[in-house]
Structures are given as C-alpha cells and as structure tokens.
Deep mutational scan, measured.
Amino acid sequence: EEERTFTNEEEARKAKKEAEKRGLRVTVTKDGTTWRVRIG
C-alpha cells in the first residue's frame, strides 16, 4: 500500500486512473487543500 499526496486535483485524478489501469484499488480523499491518493 502506498499513499501519495497532491495539491492539484488533476494530478490526483491522473494518479488514480493510472493505478486503476494496473488493477489496483484506489481511494482518493481530500484533506483541506491536499488530495491523498491511497493505492493498494
């Protein structure tokens, strides 16, 4: 499991799409101005 943080919503969405392409489970949460993308 890996967690990545982004300040840019577009980049967070891109990371989510890429992980889904690899067949991984992805959770995206917004924490104030930060987007957290949890993969795995």
Rank of each mutant, 00 (worst) to 15 (best):
residue 1 E to K: 09
residue 1 E to P: 12
residue 1 E to I: 15
residue 2 E to F: 14
residue 2 E to I: 14
residue 2 E to P: 06
residue 2 E to A: 08
residue 3 E to M: 08
residue 3 E to Q: 04
residue 3 E to N: 06
residue 4 R to N: 05
residue 4 R to S: 07
residue 4 R to D: 04
residue 4 R to I: 14
residue 4 R to M: 15
residue 4 R to P: 04
residue 5 T to M: 10
residue 5 T to K: 05
residue 5 T to R: 07
residue 6 F to S: 01
residue 6 F to I: 01
residue 7 T to H: 10
residue 7 T to M: 10
residue 7 T to E: 10
residue 8 N to M: 05
residue 8 N to Q: 05
residue 8 N to A: 04
residue 8 N to S: 13
residue 9 E to W: 15
residue 9 E to Q: 06
residue 9 E to G: 05
residue 11 E to S: 06
residue 11 E to D: 13
residue 11 E to L: 05
residue 12 A to D: 00
residue 12 A to I: 02
residue 12 A to H: 00
residue 12 A to Y: 05
residue 13 R to W: 14
residue 13 R to D: 10
residue 13 R to T: 12
residue 14 K to I: 10
residue 14 K to Y: 09
residue 14 K to N: 11
residue 15 A to Q: 03
residue 16 K to P: 01
residue 16 K to N: 01
residue 17 K to E: 15
residue 17 K to N: 12
residue 18 E to P: 00
residue 18 E to S: 05
residue 18 E to W: 10
residue 19 A to C: 09
residue 19 A to W: 10
residue 19 A to F: 11
residue 20 E to N: 04
residue 20 E to Y: 03
residue 21 K to A: 13
residue 21 K to Y: 07
residue 21 K to D: 13
residue 21 K to F: 07
residue 22 R to I: 08
residue 22 R to S: 07
residue 22 R to V: 06
residue 22 R to Y: 06
residue 22 R to M: 10
residue 23 G to M: 02
residue 23 G to K: 02
residue 23 G to Y: 03
residue 24 L to E: 04
residue 24 L to S: 03
residue 25 R to M: 09
residue 26 V to S: 03
residue 26 V to N: 00
residue 27 T to K: 05
residue 27 T to F: 08
residue 27 T to R: 07
residue 27 T to I: 10
residue 27 T to G: 02
residue 28 V to T: 02
residue 28 V to W: 02
residue 28 V to H: 00
residue 29 T to G: 02
residue 29 T to D: 04
residue 29 T to Q: 06
residue 29 T to H: 08
residue 30 K to F: 15
residue 30 K to E: 05
residue 30 K to G: 06
residue 30 K to Q: 12
residue 30 K to V: 09
residue 31 D to A: 06
residue 31 D to S: 07
residue 31 D to N: 06
residue 31 D to T: 07
residue 32 G to D: 05
residue 32 G to S: 03
residue 32 G to V: 02
residue 33 T to M: 10
residue 33 T to P: 15
residue 34 T to D: 14
residue 35 W to V: 14
residue 35 W to P: 13
residue 35 W to A: 12
residue 36 R to L: 13
residue 36 R to Q: 05
residue 36 R to V: 15
residue 36 R to I: 15
residue 37 V to E: 04
residue 37 V to T: 01
residue 37 V to P: 06
residue 37 V to W: 00
residue 38 R to V: 14
residue 39 I to H: 02
residue 39 I to M: 05
residue 39 I to W: 06
residue 39 I to K: 01
residue 40 G to K: 10
residue 40 G to W: 15
residue 40 G to P: 04
residue 40 G to I: 15
residue 40 G to Y: 15
